[in-house]
């Protein structure tokens, strides 16, 4: 069982490019449909727990699924399987890329793709703004967060802490007033 868990997550980690949100449908297929280790509802429980907790989404999923199936040893097997090949591959790349970095063709390729990478970081801002329900009443939160980090050099850690404290306070107040917060 442990070995099969490792193998399943090894496969998912090794053959998916693009991180957590690409892996989730594959995990569902493997864990729920193919292996039948848990039902869809349990899988969705893991999904919402992994999204609520800090950390890397895919690793959190591996931890949660591993925990349900085989306890702490399952956690280690699932995570190890999930990140083994990615780490090996990226290390191989990191070690050998140093020798090619100054090559004129490689430099041209990277000159072309750097703006694309920045665009790929900017794009999820707009996608996530939609799913986070950004509206006129609350859009100051992301704007202030961005300006603090970008212009004033405030560490994102403090911004996140402020968000947790602010969210708790707002939650307390709106609980007392029995009013529903948010945008609707």
């Amino acid at each position: 069982m442990l070995w099969q868990l490792f193998a399943s997550f090894w496969k998912i980690g090794t053959f998916t490019i693009g991180g957590g949100y690409v892996m989730i449908p594959l995990m569902e297929k493997e864990i729920v449909d193919r292996r039948r280790w848990m039902d869809r509802e349990e899988f969705l429980d893991c999904l919402s727990l992994s999204q609520a907790m800090p950390g890397i989404f895919a690793v959190n999923m591996a931890a949660c699924i591993g925990r349900r199936l085989c306890g702490v040893r399952g956690v280690i097997a699932a995570i190890a399987g999930n990140i083994l090949m990615p780490i090996v591959l990226i290390l191989l790349f990191a070690i050998f890329f140093r020798y090619f970095r100054d090559n004129v063709y490689v430099e041209r390729i990277f000159m072309g793709l750097r703006p694309a990478v920045v665009a790929l970081i900017a794009a999820p801002v707009f996608r996530m703004a939609k799913s986070a329900n950004v509206c006129w009443r609350n859009c100051w939160i992301p704007v202030v967060a961005a300006l603090l980090i970008w212009l004033l050099g405030v560490s994102p850690v403090w911004v996140i802490l402020a968000a947790i404290v602010g969210g708790l306070l707002y939650g307390f107040v709106s609980e007392r007033n029995k009013k529903e917060g948010g945008c609707r």
Binding site: A52, I121, A122, P124, V125, M128, A129, S131, A132, N133, V134, N138, I141, P142, V143, V144, A145, A146, L147, L148, I149, W150, P156, V159, I160, A162, A163, I164, G166, G167, L168, Y170, G171, S174, G181, G182
Partner: peptide
């Protein structure tokens, strides 16, 4: 509520 606020903040984090 905390998770909602965090989601909003993270949008700003990534923008930065």
């Amino acid at each position: 509520q905390v998770l909602r606020t965090l989601r909003l903040t993270v949008v700003g984090l990534i923008a930065a």
